[in-house]
């Protein structure tokens, strides 16, 4: 259960203040599949970082499962991030100079998953994200944008998070791979009741969701059910 109460975020640089979010309020219940849309620079990523407990609002409150995130300790936040949340960054943020497989294993290391299982889980997650097996041992900074995106997706899903936050997960993928990824999300949502929030520019992609939130200039402008729901390409 996610609840934003009047959330604002103002970026303070030396001379200027940039208000990225201006009093956004909404709720997302467990098991919902939500798409966030809006023009570039409207504050989508900023909102997503707050939802993922990676950043805190400058004003207003954000409750995750009833807990005010700003009041949690650093270690409590770390526990939430590793056990509950799978985050796919717009810019991927892979560990450079580490192999693909190592990048996907890392969340399992911090979550104290036993050694024997890590490799197996990581390989499975990478395969599910559609990455070729031959690339598992490549360094992550030697991949193409689309390949990095798939590694980032695998890393977010490897630990079976109950809340999946994806910042433009299909932005670097061709339509076919994009459909496969969205199909996976839809399946995780329908069959395993995971909460999924994605950011996207494309209406096609947003149509997979049950609900679409529109943001403009840091404010919520529309929040509606998605009538033209679309079913993803079926995966195994």
């Amino acid at each position: 259960m996610i609840e934003c109460k009047n959330v604002s975020k103002i970026y303070q640089t030396t001379s200027v203040e940039t208000p990225a979010l201006k009093g956004v309020s909404f709720q997302i219940k467990d098991g919902e599949f939500v798409a966030i849309m809006g023009p570039s620079g409207s504050g989508k990523s900023t909102l997503m970082h707050i939802l993922g407990a990676l950043d805190t609002p400058t004003e207003g409150e954000y409750f995750l499962d009833g807990k005010n995130v700003a009041s949690l300790s650093d270690d409590e936040l770390a526990d939430i991030r590793k056990n509950k949340i799978g985050f796919i960054f717009q810019s991927f943020n892979l560990l450079p100079r580490a192999t693909v497989i190592r990048n996907v294993i890392l969340p399992l290391v911090y979550a104290n998953v036993v050694k024997e299982e890590r490799e197996k889980k990581a390989r499975q997650a990478l395969a599910d994200a559609g990455l070729e097996e031959t690339q598992f041992d490549h360094l992550s900074n030697q991949l193409s944008g689309g390949q990095m995106q798939r590694v980032a997706i695998a890393r977010a899903l490897v630990n079976d998070p109950s809340l999946i936050l994806a910042d433009e997960p299909t932005g670097n993928l061709d339509t076919k791979t994009g459909d496969i990824v969205m199909g996976t999300f839809q399946k995780l949502n329908k069959e395993q009741k995971r909460t999924i929030i994605i950011i996207t520019h494309e209406h096609d992609v947003a149509e997979y969701a049950d609900r679409i939130i529109f943001i403009r200039d840091g404010a919520l402008v529309e929040d509606r059910e998605n009538e033209h729901k679309r079913l993803g390409a079926r995966t195994k």
Binding site: G52, D74, A78, R81, F87, N93, L106, P107
Partner: peptide
């Protein structure tokens, strides 16, 4: 520092 941010984002504790 970027690496540290990344590690924290995927669940590393300060102590780790």
């Amino acid at each position: 520092t970027r690496e540290i941010g990344l590690r924290k984002a995927i669940g590393a504790k300060r102590g780790d």
